[in-house]
Computed example of a mutant assay.
Amino acid sequence: MNELPLWGWLTIAIAIVIVAVLAFIAGRLLSRLKQQNQRRDQAIEKRNERLHESIVTIAKSVDQGQCPLSEGALRLVVLLDLRVEVNKPNYTERYQGLHTMYERIKHMPTHEARKKYPKAEIRQLDNEREGYEKELEDAILADVRQILKDFS
């Protein structure tokens, strides 16, 4: 019978220790990864809940005439785009009126940026925006009501 020399047994023992240490490290890393993924998923869920609440609130205010159609469209399109979903619906196709308004007015200055433009130009942009609101009112309101159904 052929016996293994002492150095052979030592090599096997060292190999077993190395494999055990690597298995332990891999297990800890997998555990940390699982925890990190859970925290990420919880953060995404919490963020989506806040977005959901904001979307419903804005849609209700647009539907009730408390928020201008153009402002509501801008806000809703951005909020819908920010949602993180596994099988994210194509909101551009689903809410075409909102997206049409968004595309037409997204270049227009808002808030502080408006102050940098001459009043005549701001008036012209406001008239243009109001024209779009009249043109797209029915489509936007239909989209807002659909959002309220989809998100309730």
Rank of each mutant, 00 (worst) to 15 (best):
V17M: 09
I18E: 00
A20S: 12
V21Y: 14
F24W: 05
I25G: 04
G27R: 07
L29I: 07
L30H: 09
L30V: 13
S31V: 00
L33M: 06
K34L: 07
K34E: 08
Q35Y: 03
Q35T: 01
Q36H: 09
R39A: 11
R40K: 11
D41I: 12
D41T: 10
Q42K: 15
Q42L: 15
Q42Y: 12
A43K: 14
A43D: 12
E45W: 04
E45H: 11
K46Y: 13
R47P: 01
N48R: 06
N48F: 07
E49Q: 15
R50P: 02
H52V: 03
E53G: 02
S54F: 01
I55K: 15
I55M: 12
V56T: 13
I58T: 13
K60D: 08
K60H: 13
K60N: 11
S61N: 12
V62N: 00
C67V: 03
L69I: 14
L69T: 00
L74T: 14
R75N: 11
L76E: 03
L76D: 04
L79C: 00
L80Y: 07
L80E: 05
R83M: 11
R83T: 06
E85V: 02
V86Q: 06
V86I: 06
Y91D: 04
Y91W: 10
Y91P: 04
T92M: 01
T92K: 11
E93D: 14
R94P: 00
Y95C: 09
G97D: 06
L98V: 03
H99Y: 15
E103Y: 02
H107N: 07
M108V: 10
M108D: 01
H111S: 10
H111G: 07
Y117R: 15
P118C: 05
K119V: 14
K119W: 11
A120N: 10
I122W: 07
Q124C: 06
D126W: 09
E128D: 11
E128L: 12
E128W: 05
E130C: 01
E130K: 03
Y132I: 04
K134H: 13
E135A: 10
E135V: 09
